[in-house]
Design a protein around this nucleic acid. Structure first.
Lengths: 150, 150
DNA sequence: CCTCAATGATTGATGGGTCAATGAATGGAT
DNA sequence: ATCCATTCATTGACCCATCAATCATTGAGG
């Protein structure tokens, strides 16, 4: 039945949102840091030094947000920034030693958190989930931005 | 292999976030209204009149957010509010006629949107997805809020 | 050399969310 | 009847995200 099928799809969307909305604040409380910020820092763990544009693309958040995060992290002594001497428009970002230490601890918390999220879900089921989410993600990417009503 | 399995789980979490972050703004542009606000209005479609606490529980967002949404929707003439004469603490909310008309149009847009999200995904696959998400959601709900680092 | 378009980073305005504090109304215990 | 805890709604302070505008720097073409 078409109606049923649609309502079920609607519910799925709600579920996706719900999971995100439940997970984000809990993640933050468990790990002591916001998800996007940890993502940012995680990237920085991998790369020694990186410029902000690159970082923005990797983490896929707005450059304004990147700037503001880094500014705060700089003030807290977690990262250092310096201009690229060969192009003064770009700024390089780098974790401090203290920063690295901290993040290792955050990542441990994150690991615990993630394990709980997938408790009782088998490898195979996660593979199925990953496949389905990938397809959903691709569909979302294809959606045209159209003119809103009015 | 444990490491692999963990990284895969990490990726799944990223995927969930990514989908939400991609979907929300697109949804908003396609339908012309934010997801949470439409959820709110959708509830109002079903119930004639409802008080804010009830609404908050149904939609599961903060009461401060509910208040602010309704205030704006009131100003736009989409909803009306009145005090419960039998208990002046609670306020009843109700869609106006104009509001209902508008929302019907929004819902049409939403339907188109949702169909695109699940394009190429069979009924059976959606059922599997629903089951997995439900279990993930339940796991998330069970996560204790612990003390953050530092 | 000088202009000008392009690029990277920043800032301001805005929207949406949370938590914590507050205000108003209620109802039960003494 | 009065006090007090509770409940609902609201407000203020804050965080985080986006978009659009701006600033500084660069490099290419006239």
């Amino acid at each position: 039945m078409l109606t049923n099928s649609y309502q079920e799809q609607e519910k799925l969307i709600l579920q996706l949102n719900e999971i995100y909305r439940q997970m984000s604040p809990k993640f933050e409380r468990c790990t002591g840091i916001s998800q996007s910020r940890l993502e940012l820092l995680h990237k920085l763990m991998e790369v020694d030094e990186i410029n902000q544009t690159e970082l923005r693309h990797q983490v896929n958040i707005d450059s304004a947000a990147v700037t503001r995060h880094l500014k705060q992290l700089d003030e807290k002594g977690v990262v250092t920034r310096r201009k690229n001497p060969e192009d003064n428009r770009v700024t390089f970002v780098k974790l401090t030693e203290a920063g690295r230490k901290k993040i290792e601890r955050y990542c441990k918390e994150k690991e615990t958190f993630i394990k709980q999220v997938f408790k009782g879900i088998s490898d195979q089921e996660r593979a199925v989930l990953s496949d389905l989410l990938t397809r959903v993600e691709s569909n979302v990417k294809d959606i045209e931005d159209e003119q809103p009503i009015e």
